[in-house]
Amino acid sequence: MSRHFAVGERVRVRQASPPGHVRTPAYARGKDGLVERLCGRFANPEELAYGRLGLPARTLYRVRFAQSELWPDYRGHTSDTVDIEIYEHWLEPAIHA
């Protein structure tokens, strides 16, 4: 269903606000980052939360975001970052390279 990404690839977190249990924090949605690593494949928490098995397992990525991308008014250094674990179905290719 969703495509796979390589380390270093620029990705965008989908902008969506579904009801129910989700592990993608609101502050990262719609933001661009770089894939820092692939963490492995894990059962989908959005299914596990309702007593189901969450299969097929999803690839979990760690995505590194520049603080200035997350918060336009960020006052720290330009090199400051936040790493967030995000499941594959919440990621899409970033529009620009």
Partner: peptide
């Protein structure tokens, strides 16, 4: 019980 069930119920 799964951790995500706990989280969902807390939420």
């Amino acid at each position: 019980m799964r951790t995500d069930e706990l989280r969902r119920a807390i939420e």
